Simulated scan of single mutants.
Amino acid sequence: MLPDPLLLPEVRRLRRRREFLFVRDGLAERRRTLVVQARARVGEDPGSHIGEGFTATKKIGGAVERNRAKRRLREAARQLLARFGRPGWDYVFIAREGTLTHGWARLLDDMESALISLART
């Protein structure tokens, strides 16, 4: 059974470079299709929003491939982050070469397992 959408925390996008650099110094979980970095925000109440950011390097391919990889990560995060992410934390999802080549179910499984592992620490 899915949780009530009204009880799920709000998810906000990370947009500034300093936000991404802040998260980089936190925890990280690596999977074949993606890397998830996470870090608790300082000085905020634990019931606040969840931050999300997405990135893909030139190793992934040209602009078309990078954009497609980020679209896949955004959709997967839309489905999973509010349920498995921790309020008061920021998450950065980094595309890997497998983000485009592996199936959708594998991407969802990898993201879910990474988020669960990060929530335990």
Rank of each mutant, 00 (worst) to 15 (best):
R32S: 11
L2S: 13
R12Q: 14
E44S: 11
E65H: 10
L81K: 05
E29M: 12
R32H: 05
I60Q: 06
L115C: 11
A40E: 14
R71S: 06
T121G: 11
R16H: 12
R106K: 14
F84N: 09
R18H: 14
R72V: 03
I116A: 09
I60P: 05
G26F: 11
L73D: 07
E65S: 10
I94F: 06
A69W: 06
Q37A: 02
P9A: 09
S48T: 13
L115H: 08
A82F: 05
F93D: 01
I50W: 05
L80G: 09
R120K: 13
L118I: 07
D45M: 09
L14G: 03
A82Q: 07
F84W: 15
A76F: 07
V23K: 03
V42G: 15
A76C: 15
F20R: 10
W89S: 06
G26Y: 12
E75Y: 07
L107G: 02
A40S: 13
D25C: 02
Y91W: 13
M1N: 10
R86D: 00
A95L: 05
R96C: 01
Q79M: 15
F54T: 04
A82E: 05
I60H: 07
S113V: 00
P46Y: 03
E44P: 00
A114G: 08
A38R: 05
L80T: 14
V42A: 15
E29I: 04
R15C: 02
R32G: 00
R12T: 10
D25I: 00
R32Q: 06
L108M: 09
A77E: 04
R41H: 10
D110F: 06
E112H: 11
I60K: 08
G103Y: 04
R15P: 00
V42W: 13
P87N: 10
F84S: 07
F22R: 10
K59M: 08
G88I: 02
G103A: 11
V92E: 02
R96H: 03
G62P: 09
V11M: 12
F22Q: 04
R74T: 05
L7P: 00
A40P: 01
T99L: 06
Q37L: 13
R72K: 14
H102E: 15
G51C: 10
A56H: 04
T121M: 10
A40I: 00
A40R: 15
L81M: 07
F93G: 03
E10L: 14
K70G: 03
F20Q: 04
R31P: 01
R120D: 08
